[in-house]
Design a protein around this nucleic acid. Structure first.
Lengths: 189, 189
DNA sequence: GCTGACTGACTAACCAGTCAATGAATAGAG
DNA sequence: CTCTATTCATTGACTGGTTAGTCAGTCAGC
């Protein structure tokens, strides 16, 4: 907790966002009260409204400033000239790690996606961007002759969605098995 | 609305469960109030507590009596002697249809899975059962010589989870593309 | 006459959000 | 460097509205 007032304000803001992420993720946005967030942050409820216009604004701040998008973009900027057999397991394992490292945020996305339009839009953006970037890579590998023609969005959906659900449910995910099956197929030779 | 009192009680109970499913699914369990459910059912709030011990009991009743499990079992009792190239697209398309036909229930599962243990257990059961039944079928097809040795749970996860997420988000799912990629693989020949 | 489905008014607790008061850090004047 | 004025992070008590849940009483079917 900084003594300087100029640093204090930004520090406190970040701290409230972190507390909100953990509380919203743990109980769900609707079940969590502003009092819960205030207690988690160790401040009074009134102070929350000094930093954020309301509950909705706090939710938006969490999504905007703790969202998955930046890391997802970095992860999926896969070198288009490296083979899928190397890149895909890496990408899936990285995505799994990204999600499990921020389970509160993931819980908040999932619990709010059906009722809260802002949260839904945030989740939609993550899925759409993941699908787009992974699709671009796959198309490049088709052009390179490594993969044959296929529907890239179907592959992206299968990989990203299974990582998403396994992370939410706490199931074990096996990136290497998944990508190996996708590349070589199930059919007996 | 039956006139006979013997039929009335069971009819009313079913009606309340249906209303609860739609209300809980639409707003999320936490955001939906018992008053909302009562209004949707066209009865007073007091009557809800005549039929159900509380909100939690109503949630449990919706899961137990409107859950996906029976239909999922019927769908996945795939004839083990039919080829995967036929069966898998059918199963995935059927699962998609099952989920999109009951979006309220699906919304209720997703919104509550992270905060409500009862709902989480219900969703876990659906995924575990789906993974088990689909895994059994795939193992049978390996024994039949159609497919080579692989990790069945990885395939089940990819198919079921992608259907789940696409249904929740209202995205388009292409069962034939997905299963075709899984069976024949992405690698160029 | 009795059972039980049903009502509507009730409670205590909790909700998001407001606001006047406080006091410590800070900036400016001398 | 010191005194003072101002700013602003912070508090805690407050409001109007909503929540889950209760209960005494009503009335129709048996």
């Amino acid at each position: 907790m900084p003594a300087k007032r100029s640093e204090l304000a930004t520090w406190r803001r970040e701290q409230i966002i972190d507390s909100a992420m953990s509380v919203f993720g743990g109980k769900g946005v609707d079940a969590a009260s502003m009092k819960d967030v205030a207690m988690a942050a160790g401040v009074t409820q009134g102070l929350l409204y000094h930093y954020f216009a309301g509950k909705e604004a706090l939710v938006v701040a969490v999504i905007a400033e703790r969202g998955f998008l930046p890391e997802l973009r970095r992860l999926l900027s896969a070198a288009a000239d490296r083979p899928a057999s190397e890149v895909l397991p890496e990408v899936v394992a990285g995505f799994d790690k990204l999600l499990t490292a921020r389970t509160p945020l993931l819980g908040m996305f999932l619990s709010g996606a059906h009722g809260n339009p802002k949260i839904r839009a945030g989740l939609e953006a993550v899925i759409a961007e993941g699908q787009r970037l992974l699709g671009e890579y796959l198309t490049a590998r088709v052009a390179a002759g490594e993969l044959h023609e296929h529907e890239p969005s179907a592959v992206a959906q299968m990989l990203l969605c299974s990582s998403l659900v396994t992370a939410v449910m706490g199931l074990s995910s096996d990136p290497r098995a998944k990508t190996s099956i996708l590349i070589h197929g199930l059919a007996a030779t």
